[in-house]
Design a binder for these strands. Sequence first.
DNA 1: GTTATCACGATTGTCAACAATATCGTTAAT
DNA 2: ATTAACGATATTGTTGACAATCGTGATAAC
Lengths: 222, 222
Amino acid sequence: MKPSAPARESADVTERLRDAITRGQLMPNERLIEADLAQSFGVNRANIRMALAMLDQEGLVVREPNRGARVRAVSEAEAGEIADTRLAIEGMVARRAAERATAADRKALRAIERGMRRAVEQADYAAFSQCNAALHREIQRIAGNETANRILQTLKTHLVRLQYRVIMLPGRPKSSLREHAAIVDAICAGDADAAEAAMRRHLQNFKDLLKQAIEAARLGGF
Amino acid sequence: MKPSAPARESADVTERLRDAITRGQLMPNERLIEADLAQSFGVNRANIRMALAMLDQEGLVVREPNRGARVRAVSEAEAGEIADTRLAIEGMVARRAAERATAADRKALRAIERGMRRAVEQADYAAFSQCNAALHREIQRIAGNETANRILQTLKTHLVRLQYRVIMLPGRPKSSLREHAAIVDAICAGDADAAEAAMRRHLQNFKDLLKQAIEAARLGGF
DNA sequence: GTTATCACGATTGTCAACAATATCGTTAAT
DNA sequence: ATTAACGATATTGTTGACAATCGTGATAAC
């Protein structure tokens, strides 16, 4: 059995195009020519057109009338905006998670936290990154706000190109682990205020480090 | 001179369709048949198709493969989610506004506040509603977070169908005025924490009243 | 040498016809 | 009477062709 019937090619194409952009296969400001994309994806131009329209709405590409579409470049200022917005939403999400977490939920959070600690001890960056994502995802699931989750998803999509720099910063995994532990503690204690505050601190640090990383990269080569 | 060259019909159509949905001319769960819409809007089906894809991404319609599009109905639970998310973002926005407001900005806020007070004294609901929107818009402008503003715009679009009920509640304009005054005071004082807290209180009240209004409507006929 | 004009190629926007799929009522079988 | 199979109709999805527009380079005017 298939996972879910696409039956409509454009949905699939949109996802593939989105991936190509977020994975950096298509560079910022690069022109996206419908005919070329149609050929390289092996689909009709109408599908590409549809995908571009949706990704435009999503903010991943910009389209100018009669002048085509380009991959949207997120400026440093915009990265800050995105990080602020994410911080606000995910703070609320952590709060709700603290209010709603069941015993099973708490157990799941602790398990991910243990995995994270193990990854730090073994200096396994890939595993750490994965646990990081899993933890945030789990908190979102517990909070159960689909609207917020959808928005967070697109915001993270915009940051994904930049954030790998932060993980690589010296000492970051260890401090990140501390921050995450504080979040999990607060949620498991059912302390909504503390959960929101901890999440905010975590994402504020992330934002600051992201800014540093971008600046360093800008001055130091690219 | 024109305001800005559309030159592309689909952008215009998208806006018109969005308006038709938010203004209630197209009811929730109503099927949106491409051919019909194309005829009634006087455009090609491809444009309608494009518009539906974008509004789907925006969350205003849902599309199922080979089964067409319908106006998305926001459930009571979802209205709560939207209100929560809005609260989180707009709290952050108020905080930033407090940090960034110039003397001119403060003057503009005070002017809108005066207009609001006048509207309440004269029991002019339309004017009040307009000042309400203007005040929130002005705060967003001052904060200068375009990412957040875009998201707030779409979230409000989803609530617009419901929120008129709240304004009509007895005594609401007066309490709303108090809440707004507190927000303006905090922003003008440059007190970021107070501004966020005041905005949160305001939107939390809004959320609670919205829930009440929806419940009352559900029990009392519609 | 600089600027204006024009024609051409590349690309996007529009359109109508066709194919594929779902919906719904009818009929037939049990 | 209930269910299953079937076919007609409505609707969406796909495709290719055509029209409109933009960028660019060549040419001409000054």
